[in-house]
């Protein structure tokens, strides 16, 4: 009896192409589909090893997905134990190798298994109305998620401005002094730095929404250093303030 191995060949082709795409460092928009295909290939091939051809479609799909999820768990531990960093080449190589190994096992075992036991797919009897209903459901569900994304992006939050004076890591006598404007629009500030109560420096800042201004300043714990940020035109009340605590 002639056997059909086209499914395994397709899975292998997907795995090899996905690996090639990943190793070629193609952009993420390109690698999403082959990356998902790589997961699907490894799950499918190994489900062919474990699940009888007579099993139902849902059971086969469930086992395939579960196996696809298991491979990184066991493989990741193995790679880690071997001292291989778990970055893209390692994951891609792991999935491709396990897919190839699964194909070899399928090719050896499928001969022994009863091909006749494989369930013949029953012809679908979907009417056009049913197909339209499923299609409409998918569109509405996608619309619901789209609505959520749009409304979450449009949700209004109070604007804010960040001011900081924090010692730089590994440079204790130097600090980062910075301002970020998240008020929702371009905002004018005046930043006044005082040492021992005397004005040491003044900056007039005009920051667009999301813009950050940053300087490195010398600090000490011997005397007080205070930075007051005023939001123009109010120069009386500091809008934000930070200090070194001395």
């Amino acid at each position: 009896m002639r056997r059909n191995y086209s499914d395994i060949a397709i899975a292998e082709a997907v795995a090899i192409l996905a690996c090639a795409a990943l190793l070629a460092h193609l952009p993420a928009s390109v690698t999403i589909v082959p990356g998902l295909g790589l997961f699907a290939a490894v799950g499918y091939v190994w489900s062919e090893v474990f699940v009888s051809p007579a099993a139902g479609g849902l059971e086969r799909a469930a086992v395939a997905i579960a196996l696809a999820l298991m491979v990184p768990i066991f493989g990741g531990l193995g790679l880690y134990a071997a001292g291989i960093p778990l970055h893209r080449p390692a994951w891609a190589g792991l999935l491709a190798v396990v897919t190839l190994a699964g194909a070899v096992v399928v090719l050896t075992t499928r001969r022994r298994r009863d091909e006749g036991a494989r369930r013949k797919p029953r012809p679908r009897r979907w009417s056009a109305w049913h197909a339209a209903a499923f299609g409409a459901a998918a569109v509405i569900a996608a619309g619901a998620v789209g609505l959520a994304v749009v409304s979450a992006n449009a949700q209004k939050y109070p604007g804010y401005t960040q001011l900081w004076l924090s010692p730089l890591q590994n440079k204790p006598l130097t600090a980062s002094l910075g301002v970020t404007n998240e008020q929702g629009s371009t905002t004018q500030y005046r930043l006044v730095l005082r040492r021992k109560g005397r004005v040491s420096a003044t900056w007039n800042l005009t920051l667009t929404n999301g813009q950050t201004w940053q300087r490195t300043v010398a600090i000490t714990d011997k005397y007080s250093i205070v930075a007051n940020l005023y939001r123009l035109p109010d120069l009386t009340h500091p809008y934000r303030n930070v200090s070194n605590g001395a």
Partner: peptide
């Protein structure tokens, strides 16, 4: 118990998501 992080990390690595 790194199972979840391993699977997600693998997916991120091979898809760029």
């Amino acid at each position: 118990y790194p199972g979840l992080e391993e699977v997600t990390s693998a997916l991120i690595s091979v898809t760029g998501l």
